[in-house]
Design a protein around this nucleic acid. Sequence first.
DNA 1: TATGAATGAGTATTCATTCAT
DNA 2: GATGAATGAATACTCATTCAT
Lengths: 218, 218, 218, 218
Amino acid sequence: MTHPRKKIPTLVKDQRLIQKRREQMIAAAVSLFTEKGFHKTTTREIASKAGFSIGTLYEYIQSKEDVLYLVCDAIHQELEDRLLPVLKEQATGRESLVQAIRRLFEIMDHMQDQILIIYQEAKSLPADTLRYVLKREEEITSIFEQVLKKGIEDGSIAMDPKDVKLMAHNIMVLGEMWVFRRWALAKNFTLEEYIDKQTAMILNQISYRAQAEESQIS
Amino acid sequence: MTHPRKKIPTLVKDQRLIQKRREQMIAAAVSLFTEKGFHKTTTREIASKAGFSIGTLYEYIQSKEDVLYLVCDAIHQELEDRLLPVLKEQATGRESLVQAIRRLFEIMDHMQDQILIIYQEAKSLPADTLRYVLKREEEITSIFEQVLKKGIEDGSIAMDPKDVKLMAHNIMVLGEMWVFRRWALAKNFTLEEYIDKQTAMILNQISYRAQAEESQIS
Amino acid sequence: MTHPRKKIPTLVKDQRLIQKRREQMIAAAVSLFTEKGFHKTTTREIASKAGFSIGTLYEYIQSKEDVLYLVCDAIHQELEDRLLPVLKEQATGRESLVQAIRRLFEIMDHMQDQILIIYQEAKSLPADTLRYVLKREEEITSIFEQVLKKGIEDGSIAMDPKDVKLMAHNIMVLGEMWVFRRWALAKNFTLEEYIDKQTAMILNQISYRAQAEESQIS
Amino acid sequence: MTHPRKKIPTLVKDQRLIQKRREQMIAAAVSLFTEKGFHKTTTREIASKAGFSIGTLYEYIQSKEDVLYLVCDAIHQELEDRLLPVLKEQATGRESLVQAIRRLFEIMDHMQDQILIIYQEAKSLPADTLRYVLKREEEITSIFEQVLKKGIEDGSIAMDPKDVKLMAHNIMVLGEMWVFRRWALAKNFTLEEYIDKQTAMILNQISYRAQAEESQIS
DNA sequence: TATGAATGAGTATTCATTCAT
DNA sequence: GATGAATGAATACTCATTCAT
């Protein structure tokens, strides 16, 4: 169902070892990229913070960019892992949406360092690899598309199906905005206030009365 | 009225020359940063593309980061210079808002490369310098605050004054989103459609009927 | 007993290798510094003459100044290693002094290039590091202090103990003078003559008859 | 009588101007070379501290080394100008010697920064130019040769004429030693003490009783 | 599998010197 | 005579990557 991840070739064969080493590597890299950015972090530092030698690092990756990709992918994975459990089968689309927005924003608050890495460093990935990361971002965005569609179907959400995709992106971006405009927002709002206000705005778009307005604007 | 810019020291004294050389330098840097990013662009490339030698480059700046700052500042200046003229004294706040949103989004579309530079490279600025750039971003955001306030005063816009700041940031981010989610949005919408839909959504938040709804959500 | 040397940090761990590489590095640097001086010698030249790459050089030092320090320290070490063996337990202070002066002057003649490096380049060391080098110079000077004191004790040398330190410095400087005034001295004297004459002068100061004279001078 | 100075070509013709500019230049350079050394001082700094532009600097010299030469020569000139007046026609050689030694050591104390420049930076002069500086040093040394010879002639000094040259060099070096071993000497002696002790030692060499001793040493 | 020494291409920055005005 | 903008060769130092052990 989900898009396949990029395979990063390895000189090592033991799968369990690969996973362990990569977890160490990713944890080290996240903390270093957060602190100094991708370019100012050296592979030596990553290896050393991960607890092994530079030679060993290169047994598990082929280039520094590979580390960045693994980091991005792990972040997306964690984001998804934290977001999905909030969706309940029995809830209406609207209920799920409110929950998912809250959860998304809380995740953004909690993972702000990691989110920033994706925003600021992903561009350093080779074009090919970047595509995997963007695909992943799209997959996560599509979670909101699903929720919105469910709401339309069960009647709890009123909106033009053609607008579902845009709305899903809007929600993601409003979440990320809490991270990358934090310097301005945190001066004026708590996370709670931010969630409440943005949720209200989003809900306002998908209620019946809103639909009438839309036509008379432009 | 506006926040003062950072002064970048120069070895050259002739002000006219400084301006001319810096314009050349900025133009060269924008194109190179867009193409390869800040870190992968060398100072020699900047100088050479600007049409002078590496020695001359350093007569007009003190470090590579200075070039990045000048680029960011010039981009913000151009953005503001393009945005402000759309505001007319005699228009209502609501009319101005619609115009300004359209203009902002068009500018984002037109200056996408530059906007991306700010988003992706500003983090490489020294902390001190970054503050100047963020301050500038806030100034531009406050243009929308002014417009919203005017609308509230002249009765053309209905919203809680406490929400003005957040709404202004939302508008800016929805504009920038056209740039940094272009890989997803451009597949589904034209700029026109994007402007219309997002404008509708924003207007929906600031119409009288919307106000009633807001309270009953959370 | 001797003052501790400055530790120069290394990226390499193998102590034997460190010693070997540093010996290569020092030999290369001495010859280059002699030929062109510290400032006009490039790190690349040092590495290349030492037989390894510039990258390898920096595995064993942290800065070009580190090389200079290592060179100075090695020179002092060699000087001391050549000087000390001349001192015999059973000799009188006066006998030891004559031997040590001769040996010192011979060393100066033999190591003139190296001595010049210390004289002319040590000032380029960071203040902290320079202190280590001067301390070392003082240690070597104190060898002559010991010899003089021994002579006073065993009665073979007659001088005011308060003058021991100055005399030790004088001896060292008269030795170094053979190096840095060589352009004038070598035209007029052989090393043998120089040793004889200066030794005579020094001995003249520490003989009983000399003491009487001193008081009637100033 | 004195050795001719090196001519440093000029683009400017007005001799009075040349002298004025060079004085400014030398004063600036001495202070900068003292503070940071020759290599770390830039020509721009020299020009700026001298009160004119870099372009003007090069109207009066041809290379940075020329500045160093002018500085060395000016220092030697000042040294000589301060030393010579102490010599009185009517005094005995021995009296003159004592006076000249005292004066020399006082000059060394007073001009320590400048003396250090000659000691540490002269090696950066082109070989040709260096010869002029060494010649000058020899000239100054020969002042002491003259005094010693006069003493021998008038019977106030007892020494082998063949040792005059060496003794003159010894005196010069013992003076310079107050500068370049200041880090060690100043901890133990005042200038007065230093002068007294070294003078005593020198006089001890040139008194009749000393002569006897000399033969029996080696 | 793990190590870490070796490599050398790459890069920001400096600075003596020139020359048109 | 004075100025100062322009030049570009030169240089210390870094760091991703390799490979022998």
